[in-house]
């Protein structure tokens, strides 16, 4: 029996989003969507978090930050890419400063489509991520080695 499913704490980082998905992630925490019903708390602190929610595409300066945040999170952890920019780079894919989706830097577990992703879609995505989190927790419990920290190729 794992408690990860009942108490997932998330950390939100705006990689280079237009704020649209950002404010929808925040809206999930507020009365109308209230994800605290599932025990989800926005910790704002990588050391407390289980789920890394990233909005927006990755560019050169944020890449380091994302890696830093991800590596500071203790295991087990999952990554949810919210919005099309976080998934593929979206409409900004072609610009000179965008490297692409979050998966160019980190292993992404769940992609949430939408521009901007709706709070309902984000809730669905996080709920889906919980299953993955639990599998990872079970693997760790069974004695699997901790996955190595993700290194950025400079």
């Amino acid at each position: 029996m794992s408690f990860f499913k009942k108490s997932p704490w998330l950390l939100h980082y705006d990689a280079s989003s237009c704020n649209g998905c950002d404010i929808e992630v925040l809206a999930c925490l507020t009365p109308v969507y209230d994800v605290e019903r599932f025990g989800i708390v926005n910790t704002g602190n990588p050391k407390h978090a289980d789920i890394l929610v990233i909005t927006g595409s990755v560019n050169e300066p944020t890449r380091e930050v994302i890696l830093n945040l991800y590596n500071q999170m203790p295991h087990p952890k999952v990554v949810v890419a919210v919005g099309v920019c976080a998934a593929t780079g979206g409409i900004f894919r072609d610009t000179y400063n965008v490297l692409g989706g979050v998966d160019t830097v980190l292993p992404v577990d769940v992609y949430v489509p939408g521009c901007a992703a709706r709070p309902e879609a984000i809730i669905d995505g996080v709920v889906k991520a919980l299953g993955i989190l639990e599998t990872k927790a079970a693997a760790l419990k069974a004695g699997a080695a901790e996955p190595a920290a993700v290194e950025g190729s400079k």
Binding site: D14, S57, N59, V65, I91, D94, T95, Y96, N97
Partner: peptide, 25 residues
């Protein structure tokens, strides 16, 4: 500079009507 995407430059790649959607973003 953390969320610089280079949106203005997209004007060279998207036509003026598409740019309205880009501009909203």
């Amino acid at each position: 500079g953390f969320i610089h995407r280079g949106l203005e430059r997209l004007a060279e790649k998207k036509d003026i009507h598409e740019m309205a959607y880009v501009s909203e973003r």
